[in-house]
Protein backbone atom coordinates (compact mmCIF):
# COMPACT_ATOMS: atom_id res chain seq x y z
CA UNK A 1 0.00 0.00 0.00
CA UNK A 2 1.36 3.39 -0.94
CA UNK A 3 1.65 6.12 1.63
CA UNK A 4 -0.39 8.39 -0.61
CA UNK A 5 -4.05 8.24 0.25
CA UNK A 6 -6.89 10.69 0.21
CA UNK A 7 -9.94 11.06 2.40
CA UNK A 8 -13.50 12.05 1.63
CA UNK A 9 -13.27 15.48 3.27
CA UNK A 10 -12.03 17.37 0.22
CA UNK A 11 -8.56 17.62 1.70
CA UNK A 12 -6.05 15.29 0.16
CA UNK A 13 -3.48 13.62 2.35
CA UNK A 14 -0.68 13.66 3.05
CA UNK A 15 -0.45 17.44 3.29
CA UNK A 16 1.99 19.92 4.75
CA UNK A 17 1.02 22.12 7.67
CA UNK A 18 3.09 25.08 8.85
CA UNK A 19 3.93 25.50 12.53
CA UNK A 20 5.90 28.75 12.54
CA UNK A 21 9.48 29.26 11.35
CA UNK A 22 11.12 26.33 13.14
CA UNK A 23 8.63 23.49 12.76
CA UNK A 24 6.61 21.96 9.94
CA UNK A 25 4.15 19.08 9.94
CA UNK A 26 3.06 16.41 7.51
CA UNK A 27 -0.47 15.23 8.14
CA UNK A 28 -1.80 11.85 6.98
CA UNK A 29 -5.39 12.15 8.25
CA UNK A 30 -7.55 14.23 10.56
CA UNK A 31 -8.86 11.09 12.27
CA UNK A 32 -7.47 8.47 14.62
CA UNK A 33 -6.54 5.63 12.32
CA UNK A 34 -4.02 2.85 12.60
CA UNK A 35 -3.06 3.27 8.94
CA UNK A 36 -2.31 6.98 9.38
CA UNK A 37 -0.33 6.23 12.53
CA UNK A 38 1.70 3.57 10.71
CA UNK A 39 2.39 6.09 7.92
CA UNK A 40 3.63 8.54 10.55
CA UNK A 41 5.88 5.97 12.21
CA UNK A 42 7.21 4.70 8.89
CA UNK A 43 8.21 8.22 7.84
CA UNK A 44 9.71 8.86 11.28
CA UNK A 45 11.79 5.69 11.00
CA UNK A 46 12.89 6.73 7.51
CA UNK A 47 14.06 10.13 8.81
CA UNK A 48 15.96 8.43 11.65
CA UNK A 49 17.69 6.03 9.24
CA UNK A 50 18.41 8.64 6.57
CA UNK A 51 18.27 12.11 8.17
CA UNK A 52 17.56 15.33 6.29
CA UNK A 53 20.10 18.08 6.99
CA UNK A 54 18.77 20.71 9.38
CA UNK A 55 16.14 18.50 11.01
CA UNK A 56 16.63 18.73 14.78
CA UNK A 57 13.74 16.71 16.24
CA UNK A 58 10.75 14.73 15.02
CA UNK A 59 7.48 14.35 16.90
CA UNK A 60 5.23 11.51 15.75
CA UNK A 61 1.59 11.84 16.82
CA UNK A 62 -1.66 9.98 16.04
CA UNK A 63 -1.86 11.18 12.46
CA UNK A 64 0.93 13.61 11.75
CA UNK A 65 4.67 13.98 12.01
CA UNK A 66 5.99 17.34 13.15
CA UNK A 67 9.58 18.15 12.35
CA UNK A 68 11.62 20.79 14.17
CA UNK A 69 14.29 22.35 11.97
CA UNK A 70 16.96 25.00 11.87
CA UNK A 71 15.97 27.56 9.22
CA UNK A 72 19.64 28.49 8.82
CA UNK A 73 20.31 25.01 7.42
CA UNK A 74 17.05 24.11 5.69
CA UNK A 75 14.05 26.19 4.68
CA UNK A 76 10.56 24.97 5.53
CA UNK A 77 9.34 25.12 1.93
CA UNK A 78 12.12 22.81 0.79
CA UNK A 79 11.73 20.54 3.81
CA UNK A 80 7.99 20.21 3.17
CA UNK A 81 8.68 19.03 -0.39
CA UNK A 82 11.26 16.57 0.88
CA UNK A 83 8.82 15.17 3.44
CA UNK A 84 6.07 14.68 0.84
CA UNK A 85 8.54 13.00 -1.48
CA UNK A 86 9.79 10.73 1.28
CA UNK A 87 6.22 9.83 2.27
CA UNK A 88 5.38 8.91 -1.34
CA UNK A 89 8.36 6.57 -1.63
CA UNK A 90 8.04 4.17 1.23
CA UNK A 91 5.84 1.21 1.85
CA UNK A 92 4.08 1.24 5.20
CA UNK A 93 5.92 -0.88 7.67
CA UNK A 94 3.46 -3.34 9.13
CA UNK A 95 6.00 -4.75 11.54
CA UNK A 96 4.37 -3.36 14.63
CA UNK A 97 6.32 -2.64 17.81
CA UNK A 98 6.90 -4.88 20.80
CA UNK A 99 3.99 -6.70 22.44
CA UNK A 100 4.23 -6.01 26.16
CA UNK A 101 2.29 -7.32 29.12
CA UNK A 102 1.44 -4.77 31.81
CA UNK A 103 0.31 -6.13 35.17
CA UNK A 104 -2.50 -3.90 36.47
CA UNK A 105 -3.86 -3.67 39.99
CA UNK A 106 -7.47 -2.74 39.19
CA UNK A 107 -9.22 -0.66 41.84
CA UNK A 108 -7.28 0.64 44.82
CA UNK A 109 -7.25 3.96 46.61
CA UNK A 110 -6.46 6.33 43.74
CA UNK A 111 -8.86 4.77 41.26
CA UNK A 112 -12.28 5.91 42.39
CA UNK A 113 -13.84 5.55 38.94
CA UNK A 114 -14.02 1.78 38.61
CA UNK A 115 -17.32 1.46 40.50
CA UNK A 116 -18.80 4.58 38.88
CA UNK A 117 -17.87 3.18 35.51
CA UNK A 118 -19.55 -0.17 36.31
CA UNK A 119 -22.71 1.68 37.41
CA UNK A 120 -22.65 3.89 34.32
CA UNK A 121 -22.32 0.87 32.03
CA UNK A 122 -24.72 -1.29 34.05
CA UNK A 123 -22.04 -3.93 34.46
CA UNK A 124 -20.32 -5.54 37.42
CA UNK A 125 -16.88 -4.27 38.40
CA UNK A 126 -15.49 -7.70 37.47
CA UNK A 127 -17.01 -7.39 33.98
CA UNK A 128 -15.50 -3.93 33.45
CA UNK A 129 -12.09 -5.26 34.46
CA UNK A 130 -12.43 -8.36 32.26
CA UNK A 131 -13.50 -6.24 29.29
CA UNK A 132 -10.71 -3.70 29.77
CA UNK A 133 -8.12 -6.48 30.08
CA UNK A 134 -9.46 -8.36 27.03
CA UNK A 135 -8.26 -5.92 24.40
CA UNK A 136 -4.89 -5.37 22.75
CA UNK A 137 -3.91 -1.70 22.93
CA UNK A 138 -1.54 0.17 20.68
CA UNK A 139 0.65 3.11 21.71
CA UNK A 140 -0.32 5.76 19.16
CA UNK A 141 1.89 8.41 20.61
CA UNK A 142 3.88 9.60 23.58
CA UNK A 143 3.11 13.16 24.55
CA UNK A 144 1.53 15.73 26.80
CA UNK A 145 3.85 14.79 29.70
CA UNK A 146 7.14 12.83 29.79
CA UNK A 147 6.45 9.23 28.77
CA UNK A 148 2.64 9.64 28.85
CA UNK A 149 1.19 6.96 26.55
CA UNK A 150 -1.90 7.59 24.42
CA UNK A 151 -3.42 4.20 23.63
CA UNK A 152 -5.86 3.05 20.97
CA UNK A 153 -7.90 -0.14 21.11
CA UNK A 154 -10.30 0.60 23.97
CA UNK A 155 -13.46 -1.60 23.58
CA UNK A 156 -16.32 0.62 22.45
CA UNK A 157 -18.53 -0.20 25.44
CA UNK A 158 -15.93 1.45 27.67
CA UNK A 159 -15.84 4.74 25.71
CA UNK A 160 -16.74 7.32 28.37
CA UNK A 161 -16.59 11.13 28.33
CA UNK A 162 -14.05 12.92 30.51
CA UNK A 163 -15.13 14.18 33.93
CA UNK A 164 -16.66 17.69 33.94
CA UNK A 165 -14.30 18.73 36.75
CA UNK A 166 -10.75 17.38 36.54
CA UNK A 167 -9.12 15.93 39.66
CA UNK A 168 -6.12 17.78 41.06
CA UNK A 169 -3.78 14.81 41.35
CA UNK A 170 -3.69 11.47 39.60
CA UNK A 171 -0.76 9.20 40.36
CA UNK A 172 1.85 7.96 37.91
CA UNK A 173 0.96 4.54 36.50
CA UNK A 174 -2.79 5.18 36.61
CA UNK A 175 -4.67 3.50 33.73
CA UNK A 176 -7.26 5.91 32.34
CA UNK A 177 -10.13 6.32 29.91
CA UNK A 178 -10.82 9.63 28.16
CA UNK A 179 -13.52 9.43 25.51
CA UNK A 180 -12.39 6.85 22.94
CA UNK A 181 -8.83 6.88 24.16
CA UNK A 182 -7.06 5.01 26.89
CA UNK A 183 -3.87 6.06 28.62
CA UNK A 184 -1.16 5.19 31.07
CA UNK A 185 -0.20 8.14 33.27
CA UNK A 186 3.53 8.74 33.54
CA UNK A 187 3.92 11.55 36.07
CA UNK A 188 1.51 12.67 38.81
CA UNK A 189 -0.75 15.53 37.80
CA UNK A 190 -4.29 16.82 37.31
CA UNK A 191 -6.57 14.95 34.91
CA UNK A 192 -10.19 14.80 33.82
CA UNK A 193 -9.90 11.20 32.64
CA UNK A 194 -11.50 8.25 34.48
CA UNK A 195 -9.17 5.76 36.10
CA UNK A 196 -9.54 2.03 36.59
CA UNK A 197 -6.35 0.92 38.24
CA UNK A 198 -2.62 1.34 38.11
CA UNK A 199 0.44 -0.37 36.82
CA UNK A 200 3.48 -0.41 39.07
CA UNK A 201 5.95 -0.01 36.25
CA UNK A 202 7.35 3.48 35.82
CA UNK A 203 6.78 4.82 32.32
CA UNK A 204 9.25 7.61 33.01
CA UNK A 205 12.28 7.71 35.24
CA UNK A 206 14.95 10.26 34.23
CA UNK A 207 17.54 8.43 36.34
CA UNK A 208 17.22 5.14 34.41
CA UNK A 209 19.64 4.47 31.52
CA UNK A 210 16.53 4.28 29.30
CA UNK A 211 14.23 6.90 30.88
CA UNK A 212 11.19 6.05 28.74
CA UNK A 213 9.52 2.65 28.95
CA UNK A 214 7.29 2.88 25.88
CA UNK A 215 7.46 4.21 22.38
CA UNK A 216 4.88 4.81 19.69
CA UNK A 217 4.01 1.57 17.89
CA UNK A 218 4.36 -0.66 20.96
CA UNK A 219 1.35 -2.88 21.75
CA UNK A 220 0.07 -3.62 25.21
CA UNK A 221 -1.90 -6.31 26.99
CA UNK A 222 -3.17 -5.59 30.49
CA UNK A 223 -3.24 -8.43 33.03
CA UNK A 224 -5.16 -7.99 36.29
CA UNK A 225 -3.17 -8.83 39.43
CA UNK A 226 -4.22 -9.11 43.09
CA UNK A 227 -2.98 -7.07 46.05
CA UNK A 228 -0.35 -9.67 46.99
CA UNK A 229 1.19 -9.72 43.51
CA UNK A 230 1.01 -5.91 43.38
CA UNK A 231 2.91 -5.65 46.68
CA UNK A 232 5.58 -8.06 45.42
CA UNK A 233 5.89 -6.16 42.13
CA UNK A 234 6.11 -2.87 44.05
CA UNK A 235 9.13 -4.30 45.92
CA UNK A 236 10.73 -5.42 42.66
CA UNK A 237 10.17 -2.03 41.00
CA UNK A 238 11.71 -0.23 44.01
CA UNK A 239 14.68 -2.61 43.93
CA UNK A 240 15.06 -2.08 40.18
CA UNK A 241 14.68 -5.78 39.39
CA UNK A 242 11.18 -5.74 37.86
CA UNK A 243 11.16 -6.46 34.16
CA UNK A 244 8.33 -5.84 31.75
CA UNK A 245 7.33 -9.07 30.00
CA UNK A 246 7.74 -8.96 26.24
CA UNK A 247 5.54 -11.51 24.56
CA UNK A 248 7.10 -13.39 21.69
CA UNK A 249 4.83 -13.91 18.69
Amino acid sequence: MSLLASSGTGISYPRIIRCGDRAIGIEFSDQVSETANLQVLTLDASLAADPIDGVLETIPTYRSLTVIYDPKTVRGAKLGEALLQRAAQGEIERSAGRLLEFPVFYGGEHQADLEDLARLKDMTVADVIALHASAEYRVYMIGFAPGFAYLGGLPEILHTPRLAVPRQRIEAGAIGIGGRQSSINSVPGPSGWRFLGRTLFKLFDPMRPEPFLLKAGDRILFRGIDAAEAAELDRQVSAGTAKLKEIAE
Binding site: R22, A23, G25, S64, Y150
Partner: peptide
Protein backbone atom coordinates in the same frame (compact mmCIF):
# COMPACT_ATOMS: atom_id res chain seq x y z
CA UNK B 1 -11.43 19.68 19.34
CA UNK B 2 -8.88 18.05 17.08
CA UNK B 3 -7.25 14.65 17.29
CA UNK B 4 -4.26 15.63 19.45
CA UNK B 5 -1.15 16.56 17.52
CA UNK B 6 2.19 18.20 18.26
CA UNK B 7 2.46 21.67 19.73
CA UNK B 8 5.53 23.90 19.69
CA UNK B 9 6.70 26.80 21.80
CA UNK B 10 4.59 29.68 20.46
CA UNK B 11 1.57 27.60 19.38
Amino acid sequence: DIVSDATVVGS
